[in-house]
Nucleic acid binder design. Sequence first.
DNA 1: CAGCATCCGGGTGGATACTG
DNA 2: CAGTATCCACCCGGATGCTG
Lengths: 138, 138
Amino acid sequence: MEPRHTEVTVSASSSAHAAPRYDSVDCRRVSQLLARVGDKWTVLIVQALGGGPKRFNELKRLIGGISQRMLTLTLKNLERDGLVTRTVTPSIPPRVDYELTDLGHSLREPVDALGDWALAHMARIDAARERFDQTLAD
Amino acid sequence: MEPRHTEVTVSASSSAHAAPRYDSVDCRRVSQLLARVGDKWTVLIVQALGGGPKRFNELKRLIGGISQRMLTLTLKNLERDGLVTRTVTPSIPPRVDYELTDLGHSLREPVDALGDWALAHMARIDAARERFDQTLAD
DNA sequence: CAGCATCCGGGTGGATACTG
DNA sequence: CAGTATCCACCCGGATGCTG
């Protein structure tokens, strides 16, 4: 792991508010990235490719529920961002393999962190939603 | 431009290629959460509230560029998910304070991780995009 | 000050049909 | 098999105007 900043993270405790680690400009970029990563399929594809190179229809089956249009588009975006490589083998029938780059692999770490958070707190969120929707029904 | 990036020592917690840490169902939920978190304003609001409780227009000014419609909607979603509390002080003029819950604060950690990733690799992504767009222009 | 209601333009994403 | 092309429904989100 990179020994980047030793700054204290929030860890929901006594020292209420952590200093803002990002200025507003940074937040925009982060927000943009999250919008890209947070689109409907990117994470699914990255996670699917986390297990190694995959072919087009292999990915399609693996993910399930994705249209080939969206698979194509999302893969193209990932390739454009340098997160995925596209390797064509001009045979008949043609063969195309998609694989995560180092950059793509490195993305899995923070995404997994968010995944862990989601799994750890999903129950609380669902409960909060039910409570909220319930008190609205009055 | 040599990829001089710290090859993530995945041996720490999870291995790169081996067992997926999430099944497909988990991935859906993670994906859904990312879609929520990755919407246009959620992260900006969470980060703004990271500095402590804020009032409605205070948030609006702080974030800048957000319409009150979206601020209202996003705050309501955050409240529904139990990430933010809404405290009304019935005075004239009325006063409403928004504050991160413990759950909301805990979200900042993984989000910051993604933010660090974005800031660390944004240059590479931009470069990759330029290269990609360039080779398409041929 | 802190919203809600309404209208509306653009983008996202599914379904379908066709190609090399 | 691995796409491209087209059409279209939906919804996100901005602008505006009005309330308590």
